[in-house]
Nucleic acid binder design. Sequence first.
DNA 1: TTTCTATTATACCGTTCGGTATACAACCTG
DNA 2: CAGGTTGTATACCGAACGGTATAATAGAAA
Lengths: 192, 192
Amino acid sequence: MENRALLLQCAKELFYAKGYDAVGVQEIVEKAGLTKPTLYYYFGSKIGVLKTLIETKFDELRISVQEALDSEGDIRKHLYCLAEVYCRFFEQDREFYMLMMALFYSARENEAYKAIRPYVAEFYETIVKVFENASHELGNMNGRQRQFAVGFIGTVNHYLLVHCEIDPEQKEEISKEQITSLINQFMYGIFS
Amino acid sequence: MENRALLLQCAKELFYAKGYDAVGVQEIVEKAGLTKPTLYYYFGSKIGVLKTLIETKFDELRISVQEALDSEGDIRKHLYCLAEVYCRFFEQDREFYMLMMALFYSARENEAYKAIRPYVAEFYETIVKVFENASHELGNMNGRQRQFAVGFIGTVNHYLLVHCEIDPEQKEEISKEQITSLINQFMYGIFS
DNA sequence: TTTCTATTATACCGTTCGGTATACAACCTG
DNA sequence: CAGGTTGTATACCGAACGGTATAATAGAAA
């Protein structure tokens, strides 16, 4: 069972560094010091490795997101908690977060994009609902909930990308003040 | 010579749809109704096709950007003109713009990323200089010019991504008012 | 001890990969 | 016409691709 985890780890590092399509199955198993049938025993296919990787990580994220949204509070508080969850998730495994972003922006007909799409869509829907549930605060959104959700994720992702440039060694964690400032910036955009 | 352009067009469409690594040379030439030696005659290699594609398009963009920045005006005007150039460039060839974005977010050790990197870097430097030249307006930026540049491109790209969701058929062009609103939103972030 | 299951390796499959040696047209130039 | 250049196709290269049939190994269970 430990070889299974080892394969996932090696695959993640290679996918992150070179991109899904540019990595061969041979390369993954060589890095892990194993052979192909072992990988196929655990994951069935190359895309199976990526899917398992995504599923495992998203299961963690899903729990954190639910906890963040179950609490009482206004839209501002919910967005703050959500952003904090994303930041901590990012800090915990930068490589995976960056890989996720690369996959999200990759070609629509690509196998790897199709693998991550349902998960991204699921989280979009969650965020769309956050805005919908806040209609008493935000007034008539004219169906722009989806646009807000895209904007929110875009803003957070963009912040984390910039953060990578500023603190490449990941010396300190993202402070609550920074997250608050991020949310304020986003909210201003909506209310203006 | 027309086959050269045909190959570039077919390659662009395939790279956009499936991703650089997932497209084979065979696939490109089949789509163009030609054979491999023709492609290799014009471009020398698969990565040569991508490089030619990028270079051709960026040459156009470079001219427009220079025109936008040569004019007199404050930082707000320069950013506005810059954003307008990007929007028109996006409208003129959405497929290429989206391909460029996908490449930009792709894995750092990937051939395709390395191909686009110098061009993206060049435009970053141009925008960093825009902020530097506006130091009399913006005051002490504490070396955050680069962060501003990343933020500016991120904001524009994100806007265009959302725009694709709102107007997938590209029925109408992005209005001057929309661009102004985009710039205002970005400027507020800086001054606050 | 025997048997079963889980895990791993050897060695191979057919296909596709990026790339090329060669030759043959078509064309312009003299 | 002759000769060079440009452009294109046939047919092939070795290597790598994703994937698998088969068997050996190990440990637990009986």
